[in-house]
Design a protein around this nucleic acid. Structure first.
Lengths: 221, 221
DNA sequence: CGAAAGTAACTCACTGGTTCGTACATTACA
DNA sequence: TGTAATGTACGAACCAGTGAGTTACTTTCG
C-alpha cells in the first residue's frame, strides 16, 4: 500500500458520503424553511453545498424524499432534546412550570423547525404521513405531563382535571405562535414578540398561565 | 337606442367587472391557501373562473399583486367581523370569556384565512408589508380587551396585571394553533383537535384558561 | 499474485414539461 | 375615431429529473 493520500479506504469514502449527506440535509433544511416546499430549489441547495444536483438525486432520490428526510432529521433531533428533560424530582407546580419554560426555550431555539412544521401543516401533513419513521413517533412528553398532572391531583395542588394532550397543546400553542406568527403579529400590532424584553415576560407567562389553569377551581364567586 | 340586450350601459359593465374580480379573488384565495404562494398556479386560478389568465393580469397586474389583494380582502373581512363583537355590557369575567370563545369560533370558521396567515409568516410577512392598507390595520380588539381588563381590575375580579396585547396573543395562539397545526398534531398525537368532541371541550378551555390566568394571584400556597 | 469483474461515488450535458408573463389582434362601446 | 376590455397564441426562463459515462476502489477467481 502506498503512503499517498490518494489511496483512500472504503470506510473513508463512506464517511465522506455521510458527511456530504449531512451537509445536504442542513442546507436543504434552510432552503425549505425559507421558501416552503414548492418555493425551494434543488439547484439552489446543490449550489450551496460542495456537491452537485446529480448527487442529491443519487443520495435521496428526489425533491420530495429529500424534504421528508429533512423533516425526519428535524423531528428526531427535537424528540431527542425532549428526552433530556428531567422534571421528575420537582414538585407538581414547579414541574409543570419548568416544562412549559423548557418548551418555550426549545421553540425559541429552533426557528427553522417551527417553520417546517408550519409548512407541513399548509400541506396538511401529507409528507409526514408518508414517513414511517415519523408516523410512529409517539411523544414521551405526554407521559411526563401525565405524571405531573397525577402528582398534582394527589397533592391537591391542581384542582382542574385536565387532559395531558390538552395541556401539551396549550403550552405548544403559546410557544409555537410566538415564534411562528411573529411576522404577521409584528406587522399588525407593532410588537416584536421575539425581542428580548417581551421574550422574558412571555416566558414567565406560559408558566403562570399553565399553573393558573391547573389550579383554578371551576368558577368561584 | 335599440332595445337589444346587446346594448349594455357602462355601469352594467362596471358591475360585471367587479363581480369578475370578486370571483377571481375568491378562487385565488382557495388556490393560495391550498398550495402556498409559490405552489399556487395562475393558470389554475384562471381555469376555475369564468375569466382568462389574460384578464387576471389585466385586473391585478401580476401574481404577487393578486396574492396581496387576496390578503387584503381576507384581513379586511376578519376585521369587519371583529367589529360586530359586543361584550361591553357583560361583566369582566364573562366579557373576556365570551371574547375568547368568539375568537375560537372565528378561527374555526375561517380555515383559509388561517392558512394564508401561516403562509404569510413563512414568507416573513414580506407581502403584508408591501400593502399600505394592511400596514395601518391596527386592531380594535386591543381596545376591547383593554377596557375589559381595566374593568376587571376595578371590580377586583382580575388580580393579574396583564397587558392587552399579551392577552390577545395568548387567546389567538390557542385558537390559531388548534386549526393551523391540526394536521401535524393529529399525525403525531393521534388526536384530531377539530373533531366535534374535542372542539367543544377546547372551546370551553380557552375561556377557562384566560379567566384563570387573569384571576390568579402570584403564588398562593 | 494479478487480471478481470463489480460497485459505490461522482461528472457532464441535456431534456421535457411547466409557468409567469406578454405581444398582438379583435371586439364593444363612447 | 378613440379607448377600454377581451381572446389567442406564444416566448423565454425556469426547474425537476435523467442518460450515459468516468473514476477509484474492492472483490473474485484463475
Amino acid at each position: 500500500m502506498t503512503s499517498q493520500p490518494l489511496a483512500r479506504a472504503a470506510g473513508e469514502r463512506q464517511r465522506d458520503a455521510d458527511r456530504t449527506k449531512a451537509e445536504i440535509l442542513q442546507v436543504a433544511q434552510r432552503e425549505f424553511a425559507r421558501h416552503g416546499y414548492a418555493g425551494a430549489r434543488v439547484d439552489e441547495i446543490a449550489e450551496r453545498t460542495r456537491t452537485t444536483k446529480r448527487m442529491i438525486y443519487y443520495y435521496f432520490g428526489g425533491k420530495e424524499q429529500l424534504y421528508i428526510a429533512v423533516l425526519e432529521k428535524a423531528y428526531t433531533e427535537v424528540r431527542a432534546a425532549e428526552q433530556t428533560v428531567d422534571v421528575a424530582h420537582l414538585a407538581p407546580v414547579e414541574a409543570i412550570r419548568t416544562l412549559a419554560e423548557l418548551t418555550f426555550d426549545h421553540h425559541d431555539a429552533h426557528r427553522d423547525f417551527i417553520k417546517l412544521v408550519g409548512i407541513e401543516n399548509i400541506h396538511e401533513a401529507e409528507h409526514i404521513r408518508k414517513s414511517e419513521l415519523l408516523a410512529n413517533l409517539g411523544a414521551p412528553v405526554l407521559d411526563i405531563i401525565s405524571r405531573i398532572l397525577d402528582a398534582g391531583q394527589e397533592s391537591g395542588d391542581f384542582v382542574t382535571e385536565a387532559d395531558a394532550i390538552d395541556v401539551h397543546m396549550m403550552i405548544s400553542a403559546f410557544c409555537f405562535f410566538r415564534v411562528a406568527n411573529q411576522h404577521t403579529f409584528g406587522a399588525l400590532f407593532g410588537r416584536d414578540m421575539t425581542a428580548p424584553e417581551h421574550r422574558a415576560r412571555l416566558r414567565t407567562m406560559v408558566g403562570e398561565l399553565t399553573v393558573a389553569y391547573l389550579r383554578a377551581a371551576g368558577a368561584p364567586a
